[in-house]
Amino acid sequence: MLISHDEVRYVAKLARLKLESGELDRYAGQLSGIINHINKISELELKHVELTSHVIELANVFREDQARQSVSRELALANGPEVEAGAFRVPQILEAEEQ
């Protein structure tokens, strides 16, 4: 297999996905098959080829900085799964500082 269980576990961690142990085997098999197909591009000599990130010629899009009406706090919070005191509530992120 091109991608091991450990690699699947590592990639899932980077992507913030929790996999059941049964899923590891299935994803390792499927991702290996896809990566095997993708590896076809390594046949090509690409040293002197430019990258394309966007297909339409685009210059930077600038505008004057200007104050304007934004979404209200109420609307911005309307879809929040847990909202408290005008903010999104999340599990504690920073450790409490020791006194």
Partner: peptide, 29 residues
């Protein structure tokens, strides 16, 4: 999930050049 993992793999350290960078060049071709 499969595509998120595939994309994360292709962008992860050590693979970015071999996959993402090369694919952007294939796009040019």
């Amino acid at each position: 999930k499969r595509r998120i993992m595939l994309g994360t793999y292709a962008l992860s350290s050590g693979y970015y050049e071999a996959y993402y960078g090369q694919a952007q060049k294939v796009r040019t071709l």
